[in-house]
Amino acid sequence: MDKTRLYYKLSSFSKGFLFFLLVLCILIPVVFPFLWMLDASFKTQKDITSIPPRFLISRTMENYRRVFEEQNFLRFFFNSAVVGVSATLISLALGLPAAYSIARYRQETYRFTILVARLMPGISLLLPWYLMFSRLELIDTFIALILSHILIGLPIVVWTMSSYFQSVPLEIEESALVDGVTRQRIFVNIVLPISTPGIVTATTLSFLFSWNNFMFSQVLSMENTKTLPLAVYNFVSYAEVDWGAVMAASIAIITPAIILTMIFQQYVVKGLTVGALKG
């Protein structure tokens, strides 16, 4: 009797332990690079290059000082934020009505057009954009950069929101229609408020993808509007490869993205998986 209980206990314990090990096998490779970057960002150049590697030894803020004082990263933060926020807001303004219409009236051609915009290789737009914006003397202005980033945000908004609107029950809208309320009122006063979770998803993703974008800034921005990814890249390409400072810069740029993800975790997961699941 005791023996079987013990066996049972042991087996459930070992099963749990096995599961724990498996989960660890997933987590370590995922998380390790981050911890390692974080650790390196507090190390001196000498400690980073020492072999065998030593962890958690030096505690210097020197790298961060260089990034923020000498390289003026706050300026790039500001640039990235202006571009990300503006592009996201405009994407919402353009994308929400479009998504609603696509969802309600099954406008599959429009949906496909937006899908193509989502899947287009950005590189095929760079060249004409560059020519267009340079004719208009808009290179290195926020306008060009924001316009280009809307093309990142808009498909995300339409893509996630058209699926979301489809899941909103029709009954509420129909009863309002019977009462003679116009459709645009219904959209603003009824549909949008109950779609807040979807909007949060779209907003977060649109901002994240704009924040991380490198290719568009690479061609459309220069000194005045340089965004963070470009600044980090330039930091490496120039002169001494100062690994500590580069790691500090990398940590600085991914931290806002990570914080945003932590706050809106549920929404981000939904947004990223919505494409693959049935609408």
């Binding site: 810069a249 940590i251 991914i254 993205a257």
Partner: peptide, 8 residues
């Protein structure tokens, strides 16, 4: 997924 590819 959400980390800036350049930094990564």
């Amino acid at each position: 997924l959400v980390s800036t590819p350049v930094a990564i």
